[in-house]
């Protein structure tokens, strides 16, 4: 059989060496076989589901601190749930620190829970119509809950009751 590459300089090398010569990357020309091809950059399209996935993890990590701290303060420490009354809440929300804590917890838990439900609705609704209306219902409930919660945290007035 006539080999078209037999006349090339590489053709006379044993097969295991010809490969090293044929791949003329920087490394191989210096006599080093590249251990690994360079990492290739890739372009990706719409990333909404990726950001949703990332958000579930990141908000989850933050929620561990916020929710466990919240539970501990409200239910366990210093007399726990028995000491909670109007004054206790008013006292806490007088401090911007607890306002921000509660606001972050409200937003993160609501968006995390709602995004989780969005995924579950996508999983289980069979018809596009059902899916659409359940998602609308969910979105409305998020706006109402986050809106009302934020409104209360920002406008809470300790003198309201008296």
């Amino acid at each position: 059989m006539t080999n078209p590459t037999a006349s090339s300089p590489v053709g006379s090398l044993p097969p295991d060496l010809s490969g090293a010569v044929a791949s003329t990357s920087d490394a191989s020309s210096r006599g080093i076989e590249a251990p690994r091809a360079p990492r290739r950059r890739v372009r990706t399209g719409s990333n909404f589901e990726m950001y949703s996935w990332l958000f579930m993890r990141l908000s989850g990590i933050v929620l561990v601190v916020l929710v466990l701290g919240h539970l501990l303060i409200m239910n366990v420490l210093d007399g726990g749930v028995h000491r909670i009354n109007w004054g206790f809440v008013a006292g806490r929300w007088a401090s911007p620190f607890w306002q921000i804590w509660d606001l972050a917890m409200l937003w993160l838990a609501e968006l995390h829970g709602a995004n989780g439900l969005r995924v579950i609705i996508n999983d289980y609704s069979r018809r596009p119509g059902t899916r659409f209306w359940l998602q609308v219902l969910l979105a409305v409930s998020v706006v109402l809950t986050v809106g009302l919660g934020s409104f209360v945290i920002f406008t809470f007035d300790p003198s309201m009751g008296s």
């Binding site: 890739v42 372009r43 990706t44 399209g45 719409s46 990333n47 909404f48 589901e49 990726m50 949703s52 996935w53 995924v119 996508n122 999983d123």
Partner: peptide, 15 residues
């Protein structure tokens, strides 16, 4: 690129 694009779709890996 092409395959990752397909898999980043809403019915792709993030499910």
């Amino acid at each position: 690129d092409d395959r990752l694009e397909i898999l980043s779709d809403s019915e792709g890996v993030w499910r």
